[in-house]
Design a protein around this nucleic acid. Structure first.
Lengths: 165, 165
DNA sequence: TATTGTTATACTCTATAACTATA
DNA sequence: TATAGTTATAGAGTATAACAATA
């Protein structure tokens, strides 16, 4: 151990990597975005995991609960997941009795995804958990910055090019 | 085709999924963050792909170029990647002659990762490409919002809990 | 001929554990 | 006994193509 300036090993380690924040990587907005996403994703997965869900299946369940009666293609497009992945997610939720595929009256190719009563219950609990987790993730921000972040991200989501892969 | 209100199929489709933005999912900051990340990640991968890199290998190269002489454990911690993944990334970059492992004089277990001249050249081109791509991703934001976003994301990165998986 | 949902498959990414050499 | 780096492997996630039913 040559570098003896900081007392504890943990402190020395932290000091060690903190210097890398001054590099071009640490200045890159896309990198910071990826990191923030990794943190919130992990927290959200932990939160909904208590309800036997992952972020993916939770999102599908939330949209099924919404009352908007999305079909599978719409879920695929909105969540930016391949149609085949949506099939697997719905299969899993349907097997657990949380959602139901309902054939569309006007177009027999189309399945609309709706929540069951049990799905609504599970969703209510999971949503509370994710909101708690999210509040904790963003606890370093004041209310104004939280609003700003959300507004900015919504602007990006609505921007042209946001639909391109 | 029962719903004939919007003229083109594309317009009808867009109208269709836009209604889902009004749901709880569309209001979720973590969801918006994931989407923004997916968009910028795809754009960045496309940009550095022209130089035979991915975002991962580009990040390692950037840190090797920085002059901070990070070792593999530091790269692993800073980039939040497993040490074994760092090995693979450096192997690839080293095989292409873009970086070099240099044994640390003080601790023979440690490898410091530094860029070669060619690595610096490739990095310069790739960095320009990522900056162009990033500018395009964030073109919907004015300068003030871009700064705000960066500041907020930096606050989150520095927050306690940002190091927890 | 195009679209919705489905199946199958291969590829990438990620997580884990065990090993070596040094400390 | 602990740490840096390496190897091997299994699991999750992702992308792609082909297919049946329907429009």
């Amino acid at each position: 151990m040559r570098n003896t300036s900081p007392s504890s090993p943990a402190a020395r380690q932290a000091e060690g990597i903190d210097r890398l924040w001054g590099t071009s990587v640490g200045e890159d907005t896309a990198f910071l975005l990826a990191r923030a996403n990794a943190i919130t994703l992990a927290a959200a997965n932990a939160a909904v995991g208590a309800f036997g869900l992952k972020v993916r299946s939770y999102s599908v369940l939330a949209l099924a609960v919404s009352g908007e009666r999305p079909n599978q293609r719409e879920l695929s497009e909105f969540l930016r997941l391949d149609p085949s992945q949506i099939v697997a997610l719905i299969d899993e939720l349907e097997k657990r009795g949380l959602v139901r595929r309902e054939p569309d009256a006007g177009d027999r190719r189309v399945n609309v995804v709706v929540a069951t009563d049990e799905g609504r219950e599970v969703y209510a609990g999971a949503r509370e958990a994710t909101e708690r987790a999210e509040a904790e993730c963003f606890s370093a921000l004041d209310d104004e910055d939280r609003d700003r972040l959300k507004t900015i991200l919504r602007t990006l989501a609505a921007a042209p090019g946001a639909s391109a892969g």
